[in-house]
Design a protein around this nucleic acid. Structure first.
Lengths: 246, 246
DNA sequence: CATGATAGTATGGTATACCATAATAGAACA
DNA sequence: TGTTCTATTATGGTATACCATACTATCATG
């Protein structure tokens, strides 16, 4: 019963063992999430030994993670040590500008290439976004949005651009979280996302691009409003910190 | 002789002490340069203890640097450990596509905002590029080019986009270095760079954008040729490694 | 009260030790 | 000769120790 056929590569892939995440990976995920959730405020010092105690790991792991987050732009090294990056208005504006270019490009390409199966996945993400919006669940809104865009970039085969956009997202996500805290105002417009989806479904690249750009423009305007509110608060001598954000 | 004037902030800034680079920073620079110079080939395993011996530092420093380079995309973690990232043709294509958008945008904005002093700096970089080209010095060519672009992005106040483009550059720089090795063919066209400069100097944003895009398109075509040559070499069962690249 | 000196503590930078797992080499066996 | 087993070495993951410097609190002095 010996067979001369080469091994079935699909069968071998199905047997592939998923390696458990090591401590470094776990801490990386935890730290990124904590920063995005504003559990560490922008500008807050990240003291290694304190993080060790909070996370229950050694300084080695903490330091390696800080290096990674530093390269990602979530953490900056100040003269007194690592701190959560503080995003400036000019930087945020630039980030939205780049997103307009890249998301517009991806939406247009997606409109050209999406299959029925793709549209189904995109629709599901939009529906999930609507549900999350109705229940006021900001975290789920963000996840549904990310899922939508991740798929748009995947369909249009622009994985590198997605990596770039994703890294820009994490840098402005603290700003979005602050917007929500300040105003209890959602930062994701379901209507705009629906317009992007509709243009993609209609196979209209230019409409998809325009809808994606308009959506980012609106997000940019919301961010400017947040900065204005932050400045007003600072001028009243009550800067917003981690404590008074909750 | 006591003065009631507040301290002169400019004078204080002039006294600011420049901190010496720590080991980690030094190793980071050294490793990045070594990767870009093809002293480590794409795909080559980066064994920590070997790097420690070569660099004369402890594993702590090496590991932290690897984390940073990993986040930058220069290093990937394989199941057997860290290795220099191997760039695929589809990725390179996407990188050039993003560069077209971002460099086009920056060139157009630079054409709108450049002062006489800016043009002088840009011209100097172009002249230096010409000199480096004439003397066949590829490293100086790359440096002059980087200086040109860094200033274009600075004038157009797109520092975030420059950070993105810079990180994309380091990922394709190994490809450029390979192109030079394979063909002794320069990858930077002085003529194209001059056209970008001329359009900026003429204050013509659309011409600047078009010239910048054309330049990236030419670089992309050169990269595809390099990949074709790498594939041909592999098909002849003589894959290009660090040894036979020199 | 302001300033300077001193001691103690906190913190980042770096090296080293320990451990688990993977990889390799060599020996034994069919 | 090919396969299996065992011992050894290599390697990454993680913790801990040590050191230099920065920061803070306290005390002494003018």
């Amino acid at each position: 019963m010996t067979s001369n056929n080469p091994p079935d590569h699909k069968a071998i892939s199905a047997l592939r063992i998923e390696r458990p995440q090591n401590l470094r990976e776990l801490v990386q995920d935890a730290m990124r999430e904590a920063i995005l959730d504003l559990r560490f405020a922008p500008g807050e010092r990240l003291v290694e030994r304190t993080l060790c105690a909070q996370l229950g790991v050694s300084r080695t792991v903490v330091r390696e993670v800080l290096r990674f987050l530093e390269a990602e732009g979530l953490v900056e090294i100040t003269p007194t040590g690592p701190a959560v990056t503080r995003i400036k208005p000019e930087e945020a504006e630039q980030i939205y500008e780049i997103r307009m270019l890249l998301e517009g490009m991806a939406a247009a390409a997606c409109a050209e290439h999406a299959t029925r199966a793709d549209l189904k996945i995109l629709k599901q993400a939009i529906d999930d976004l609507g549900t999350a919006r109705d229940t006021g669940d900001a975290r789920l809104s963000m996840k549904a949005t990310a899922r939508f865009y991740q798929h748009v970039f995947a369909v249009s085969q622009k994985t590198v651009a997605w990596k770039v956009v994703e890294s820009l997202y994490v840098r402005i996500n603290t700003l979005r979280a602050m917007t929500i805290r300040l105003s209890n105002r959602p930062t994701i417009s379901v209507g705009e996302m629906k317009r992007i989806y509709a243009a993609i479904a209609a196979g209209d690249p230019e409409a998809a691009r325009a809808a994606a750009v308009a959506h980012v423009q609106e997000a940019s305007a919301a961010a400017q409003r947040t900065f204005a509110e932050l400045e007003a608060a600072a001028a009243e001598d009550r800067p917003l910190t981690k404590e008074n954000l909750s």
